[in-house]
Simulated scan of single mutants.
Amino acid sequence: MSENEVIVDGEVVHCIGCGAKVQTNDKNALGYTPQSALEKGLKSGEVYCQRCFRLRHYNEIAPVSLSDDDFLKLLTSISETDSLIVYVIDIFDVNGSLIPGLHRFVGHNPVLLVGNKMDVLPASIKKTKVRDWLRQRANAAGIRPVDVELISAKTNFDVDRLLDQIEKYRHGKDVYVVGVTNVGKSTLINSVIRRSTGIKELITTSRFPGTTLDRIDIPLDDGHSIVDTPGIIQPEQMAHHLVGKELNLVTPQKTIKPKVYQLNPEQTLFFGGVARFDYETGDRKHGFTVYAENNLYIHRTKLINADAFYDKQLGHLLTPPSDESRVADFPALERHEFKTTQKSDVVIEGLGWVTVPSGVVVSGWAPKGVSVLIRPAMI
């Protein structure tokens, strides 16, 4: 037992948000909680580590998570169980929320793939098309799910159906819920708790103690458990290049309202300062439909002026990043070129996509490491 762990009444105190062992010494380590916050949490019965507190109250993702070795140990331990894996994906940031080679770690346990955040997709997008597309993306990553479910944990859309599917596939076994950060896993877990136990408030230490660094056990009526594992940070996620209120300007908060831009060749769209889209060559003016957070500032300019405009306006007109102090730390945008042979979506993972016509050359720009890809148009 580490000397840094907080002990109360002979038991280690765990964060009720992520299950980490609470400590007050190392700000950069898992489970850190300021002493004053710890004292308040002990009085209220809800102790959160600083990372979970910031995530809950400020939508801010702190760069503290399990190490690669810890994550490997966690996944390997799951492979030794006989259980159902519920794997939560953000359908608006699929690449950023995929865990490549998941089956190598979870063994032969069946995987139920859950696409969360359906509430942000326009109603014109058919669920069957999204489900088929998500299965294809999973298969390409080496994941063979037994089924694919689409939900919105935020609005409770089809969560009851998901619970029925979990019951169908778990066959009386434990359930492990896995996923990277910012996919809405915690929201889903809280919804599951409300439906499975009737408890409406957030997880409490007395009812659902974090048993180890890497899990929170939620008991089921038959003696088995739903095991909530911590969100794993993927540096490729757009969200990890943003802080505080910047996330709300990039991550869709409500159903997206598509916007059509009539662009001539050699015109550019900036998405705040976090991404860029260039219509490079084509035979004429075309309409390009943008699917992104409704409040994200989009600026149109000429391609020839785009680089100089970005350098001058980043942190000013083009936000996020929110100010000059953030500009210095913000990664450069990388260009990805595509030539379309059919109506397609150019996807900037974690931000949205632009539907483009056939027979054009376009480029998508995103911070280094964030995926930009092309797919057949969803709509």
Rank of each mutant, 00 (worst) to 15 (best):
A140M: 10
Q165N: 10
G142N: 03
D132L: 09
K168C: 07
A140L: 13
K129R: 12
R170G: 02
Q136E: 11
R135T: 03
I151S: 04
D158R: 14
Q136M: 07
D158K: 15
D132C: 04
S152F: 13
D119H: 14
G142S: 04
E149M: 09
A138W: 00
A153G: 14
A123K: 11
T155E: 14
D132T: 00
Y169T: 03
T128Q: 12
V130D: 04
P122A: 07
W133E: 11
Y169E: 00
Y169W: 01
Q165G: 05
V120P: 07
W133N: 04
L134S: 02
N139P: 05
R161F: 07
D158M: 13
Q165F: 03
Q136W: 04
I143G: 08
H171L: 08
R144L: 14
S124W: 09
K127L: 10
R161N: 13
I125C: 03
D119I: 07
A153E: 10
A141F: 14
R161G: 04
E167G: 01
R135C: 05
D132M: 04
R161K: 13
R131P: 08
L121E: 07
E149I: 13
D119Q: 10
E167Y: 05
Q165R: 15
A123I: 10
K129T: 10
V146R: 00
R131T: 14
N156R: 13
R161V: 10
R137N: 01
L121S: 09
Q136G: 03
I125L: 08
R144N: 15
D132Q: 00
L150Y: 08
S124Q: 07
A138S: 01
G142L: 05
L134G: 06
S152G: 09
F157H: 15
L163T: 02
S124M: 12
K126D: 13
